[in-house]
Amino acid sequence: MCLIAGATVFFRHHRSVTPSTTGARSYAPDFSLPQLSGQQLALSSFRGKVVLLDFWATWCEPCREEIPHFVDLQNLYRNQGLQIIGVSMDDGPEPVRDFYQQFKMNYPVVMCTGKVAESYGGVLGLPVAFLIGREGRIYFKHIGATELSVLEQEITTLVHGNDGQANAH
């Protein structure tokens, strides 16, 4: 069942992971951004779920490579409380809509603003992903494409409520 078996070191652009310590763990800045449908999506409406917040763009090759695996992760862990949210850095929604259809994305995608990107410390290179616990705190930040085995381990830790184990990373 585990994705790890089928995805050997796929994420070759992996650069770094920054686990938050208990004391420094901050709440993920809330935002309300338009989805591709035009409807607004508020991050706070997903409180109670484990959220993988993925800053990406259609022009970013490592981002594109990650998407099919995120689709798999969403399918695998939806019932355990995982919600992936894509935050597109594209200049407009048109290429994102095409991409969304083509890759059969199964999670919401919103269009980012400079203000929101800055609230997350600045997103000046892609991809960047944040793993947010059910209570809304940031547990992990991945800069660059993420090694799937690492990401899945973090997700399972959080969806099973073993937040304390996250400190060990």
Binding site: W59, M89, D91, C112, T113, A117, G122, V123, L124
Partner: peptide, 22 residues
Amino acid sequence: GPHILYLQAHIPGAEYIGSASD
């Protein structure tokens, strides 16, 4: 490059043109 990157940070005096892949 992308507008959102320019908005967040750019070289002083640099002019925004936009993504040349477009």
